[in-house]
């Protein structure tokens, strides 16, 4: 028995001398590999491990990587926080700017354009054409998001060569005309005056007819009850129904107008973006 124990002990020490734990570098490389293969959750865990054990701050880009992993997992708040930490750590101005653009991207994803604008306004002026173009593009999108279309136009035009600016002007003018034409307030007022008129003006004939028929039937029933039973009976029995479908009709018209403008906004944005994409390389 004794020689067995002795031999096992000696063998264990012998093996232990060759074995080694996974180093931070291995973990970092493994995380990188996991990220590239699309296994973002595993990559995130490994990167967080690196950040925890890296006491010498050797892996300075690890917070950016954590941010990228959170971003890939659609966890934009967490991604934003980590890009923020990474931006504080870095001393390279260009990299800092890129990290702020990543933070802005997180805010864009959450439709928080006002905070995105706030982040961009904190950036110092950059002379690098690429960063300047990206700054102008992101500023334009932020202004577009908060519906400051004049400012948005100014920044979008900065990213385009001069010969493409008239095309951009035409797109923005067209959009302004569209917004004036289908102003939700105007559409709502039209439907308040004549039920269904706002919907019909927007080209939604079915919904307009539906509204006018519904309110018309309720109005006819009210008049009938008034004549047969009296005013008080007509008011008590029909007022709530009338209010419900009359106000519902004009609110529905307003919502339809807002949805139409939202749809047009998406189309305008995509057109402008495609114009920029085509011309961005020709800008000085």
């Amino acid at each position: 028995m004794k020689p067995k124990i002795v031999s096992i002990t000696i063998f264990s020490f012998f093996v232990a001398s060759f074995s080694f734990a996974q180093s931070i570098n291995d973990t970092y490389n493994f995380a990188k590999q996991q990220f590239l293969t699309g296994n973002y959750e595993q990559a995130l865990t490994e990167y967080q491990r690196v950040a925890f054990f890296d006491s010498e701050n050797k892996y300075t880009d690890v917070y950016q990587k954590i941010g990228d992993s959170f971003y890939a997992l659609n966890q934009y708040n967490q991604a934003f926080k980590n890009f923020d930490i990474a931006a504080r750590y870095t001393e390279n101005d260009s990299l800092k700017t890129e990290l702020i653009f990543k933070k802005v991207n997180c805010l864009f994803k959450q439709d928080n354009y006002i905070f995105a604008l706030n982040e961009l306004l904190g950036l110092t002026e950059n002379t690098c054409p690429y960063l300047l173009n990206k700054y102008n593009l992101y500023m334009a999108i932020s202004h577009f998001g908060i519906e400051e279309y004049d400012n948005s136009f100014i920044y979008f035009s900065k990213t385009l060569p001069e010969n493409s600016v008239p095309e951009l002007t035409e797109i923005f003018n067209g959009y302004e005309r569209f917004r004036k034409r289908f102003n939700p307030g105007k559409i709502q007022t039209m439907s308040m005056i004549v039920p269904g008129l706002g919907q019909m003006y927007m080209g939604n004939i079915g919904s307009g007819l539906n509204s006018i028929v519904l309110v018309g039937v309720i109005a006819t029933a009210t008049i009938h009850i008034w004549q047969v039973y009296g005013v008080l009976d007509a008011f008590l029995s029909m007022s709530s129904w009338y209010y419900r479908y009359y106000s519902g009709g004009y609110r529905s018209a307003k919502n339809l107008a807002a949805a139409k403008i939202e749809h047009e906004k998406e189309q305008v944005y995509l057109t402008v973006l495609s114009l920029i994409q085509q011309n961005l390389n020709t800008v000085k």
Partner: peptide, 15 residues
């Protein structure tokens, strides 16, 4: 895609 157009193209999606 250094300007991040792939990400920017999906913004302002109308529901």
């Amino acid at each position: 895609d250094k300007y991040g157009f792939n990400e920017l193209n999906v913004l302002f999606h109308a529901h």
